[in-house]
Design a protein around this nucleic acid. Structure first.
Lengths: 245, 245
DNA sequence: ATACAGTATTACGTAACGTGAGAGTCAATA
DNA sequence: TATTGACTCTCACGTTACGTAATACTGTAT
């Protein structure tokens, strides 16, 4: 299928398809000798998934990260998207209730507080950011765990020692501000080590840092090396990610 | 109410409020001596209306036109917005049905055509553009009619003669292409005359031209001066609007 | 006086295309 | 074969609606 056929079938513009190709979000499986894009069945399925995310307010960059993450599972994603779409409908239902009331209010039939007038209103950029982070923010972590499971005992031991060494180093530095050169050098090593295990984008790295303080299991585990280490690492990882964008 | 209070109540950013003030979409009723914006109850009601339109995908520029048109009626608008929100929910319902089916398809439980995979998908920029044009595209026409009703008989007669004169002139030119200098000069006079009656933005002018061919009553009335005059005027008005943007 | 939260303006940057231009491709038709 | 009209490509500027950051002022509680 070429661009017009896809665009008409799907309800988007040709320009959108071009754009998605440019940014690597949806790359046609083939091109003709003349350079025409040819989309496959698989491309259409990916496009459907992209558009569900788009409907939910996800930025394209984030959609790309999610879909092309090694641990992406289509059925899992569909099920999560389904839940989020139901939530979206609930929110719309609330807005509809609000406008019904507003019409009555406008006719002088009922009274309404200011709060009621905006019930169901949510114009944040990506209302599902939190859910998404919880659902897909762990992708790199999951990948790491998968790789870890495949290592031999001696390899695991060696890796554990590397982990310990960096934890200890970071523990010694934890009283410094998170944005110092020393702290950042050490956290850079942490970034490299993590990326030997999984594919951590800078954003994912930052999210993982957040997980260290939000998830008690991580906090507990990390703070064994020094009280407050999890907090320190979280901060340093955020600075690292922001400084290296 | 100041910006933070409004932003928190409504679920938008302070920056959005600034922006709306800048573009003249929502101008706070008062400002403090220090220059702080102070929003009134009336401002909140307008904001609510703005946000319903925003939810429906209307561009801010269009929202501004609608809301500040002299013939804008709040209750009428709420009722139309209500209908459009219901339509939006229907569309979302369709998308939810589609994802339900897609999940089953993914599990191998059912088959699905490509068309079915995109049932309910509509990513056009403003899905309600047509409804809006029909509903509010007539604003200037309504205003004209209101003014006309207030004229004395002699004023009406004089105006009718002016109208006839221009119709006749245009009828003579109707065999020319719509974009010729002569045609455009005459249609310019038509624009001026209409704007003595109501507030026709260029876009509204273009919409009205479209109405001449879409609405049989107009077509019939205008074509009395010459077969095909409505079509010709519609085309010329579109060219005029586009060339004078 | 200080600190902190809130507020203003200015202004550049971002995301996601829309739009237009100019040129090539393809298939039907004369 | 030439023509026509629909389709396609790339390039690139423009648009929309803010997000973000900087700098400075304001207001209130301690």
């Amino acid at each position: 299928m070429k661009v017009k056929e896809v665009a008409d079938l799907v309800g988007i513009s040709v320009r959108t398809l071009h754009h998605y190709d440019e940014i690597g979000l949806l790359i046609p499986e083939n091109t003709t000798d003349s350079g025409y894009r040819v989309y496959s069945e698989q491309n259409l399925e990916t496009l459907q998934q992209i558009l569900f995310f788009k409907e939910l307010g996800f930025p394209l960059k984030k959609i790309k990260e999610i879909i092309y993450s090694p641990s992406f599972n289509r059925l899992d994603a569909l099920e999560s998207q389904y839940k989020m779409l139901l939530e979206r409908r609930n929110r719309l239902d609330k807005m509809i209730k609000t406008i019904e009331k507003t019409i009555k209010h406008s006719r002088g039939e009922i009274e309404m507080t200011n709060k009621e007038k905006f019930e169901g209103f949510n114009f944040s950029r990506n209302p599902y950011e939190k859910e998404a982070r919880e659902r897909w923010g762990n992708a790199a972590v999951n990948e790491s765990n998968a790789r870890l499971a495949k290592l031999s005992e001696s390899e695991k031991k060696e890796l554990a020692e590397e982990f310990s060494a960096i934890y200890k180093k970071l523990a010694e530095l934890r009283h410094l501000p998170a944005d110092t050169e020393e702290a950042q050098a050490a956290i850079g090593e942490w970034y490299v080590l993590l990326n030997r295990m999984g594919s951590y984008s800078l954003e994912a790295f930052k999210n993982v840092g957040q997980m260290y303080v939000n998830d008690e299991r991580f906090t507990k585990n990390i703070d064994r090396f020094g009280q407050g280490l999890a907090r320190f690492m979280c901060d340093a990882m955020a600075v690292y990610a922001d400084n290296n964008k």
